[in-house]
Structure formats: structure tokens, C-alpha cells
Simulated scan of single mutants.
Amino acid sequence: MQFSRVISPVENMQIWNANSNGFSFVISYETRAGPGLHGRPGFVASWRPIYENRCAIKVGGSPFGTLIEAERACDAMLGLLVTP
């Protein structure tokens, strides 16, 4: 999957997204304080089916220390989702 940075009018908000095989994946960077999203520090990955009105599900292991780790976790999750 190829993740793209989402342009946000909110200063310092860091979000990336990718779609593949009917699933949407989002990675966000969270910190405990300051601008942007708040939570446990790190890169939080989540997924949801594109064509169903369902809430997102956090990818196990989140938050990750790096964006690359979060991307790899999303790729692994996609593999599990599309395996019959």
C-alpha cells in the first residue's frame, strides 16, 4: 500500500491514509499534549471496510515508534483481511 499524507488545516496534525482491496487504512501521529491528536505518543494505525458504515478498528501494536513500523503493520493486517 502507498500511504499519502493528508493535508489538514489544523497545524501540526499528522495523518496518512491508504486504500486497498476495499479497506481504508489511516495512520495518525499522537502526543500527550500540544497541537494535533492526543493519546499515547506514537503512530496509531487503524482500518475499516470502505463500503460499510463501520467504525475504525485499531491495528494491534499501536502506537508504533515509527511511521514505517505502522505502515508494515497495516500491510500485515491487509494480508490477514484478504486471506480466505
Rank of each mutant, 00 (worst) to 15 (best):
M77F: 02
M77Y: 05
A33V: 10
L81I: 01
E30T: 14
D75I: 12
P63V: 03
G36D: 06
C74F: 03
T31D: 02
G34V: 05
L78G: 05
A76H: 15
W16Q: 01
I15F: 03
P49N: 09
R54W: 08
R54H: 11
V26W: 10
R40A: 09
N53H: 10
R40W: 07
D75E: 08
R32H: 11
Q14E: 15
C55Y: 10
K58F: 06
F43A: 03
M77W: 02
R32K: 14
I68W: 09
S46T: 10
M77E: 15
I27P: 02
F25T: 04
S4P: 01
N17H: 02
T66D: 06
I50R: 06
S8P: 06
C74V: 03
G34D: 08
N17E: 14
N53S: 04
S46N: 01
I50F: 04
R48P: 01
G79P: 13
N53Y: 10
V6T: 00
L81E: 00
V10T: 14
R72N: 14
C74I: 00
N12A: 13
D75H: 01
S62Q: 05
F3A: 07
G39H: 09
V44M: 00
L37D: 00
A70V: 06
T66Y: 10
G39M: 04
V82M: 12
A45Y: 05
R48V: 02
A70T: 07
Q2S: 04
S20F: 00
A76L: 14
N53W: 08
N12Q: 15
A73G: 04
A56V: 08
E69N: 14
P63N: 10
I7V: 13
A73Q: 06
G65S: 14
S24K: 09
M77P: 00
S24N: 09
R5E: 10
R32G: 10
F64D: 07
A73H: 03
F64K: 12
S4Q: 00
I15K: 07
F3C: 07
T83M: 12
V44E: 01
R54T: 14
L81N: 05
N53R: 14
E11M: 08
G42N: 11
R40T: 13
W47K: 02
P84S: 13
Y51Q: 10
I68L: 13
V26Q: 09
P9T: 13
P63G: 11
N21I: 03
C74W: 03
M1D: 09
S46M: 13
V26H: 04
P35F: 06
G22K: 01
R32D: 14
C55P: 13
A56T: 11
G61P: 10
A70P: 08
F25K: 03
K58R: 10
S62K: 02
A70R: 11
I27K: 02
F64A: 11
L37H: 12
S4W: 00
T31C: 03
Y29V: 06
S4Y: 03
Y51K: 13
I15T: 00
V59F: 02
N19M: 06
C74H: 01
E71Q: 15
I68N: 11
I7L: 12
G42P: 11
T31N: 09
G61Q: 12
E52G: 01
Q2I: 06
R72P: 00
L67F: 12
T31S: 12
G65Y: 06
R48L: 06
C74S: 15
S62T: 14
A18S: 12
G60E: 15
V10S: 08
P84D: 11
R5N: 08
Y51R: 13
E71M: 15
A33M: 13
T66C: 06
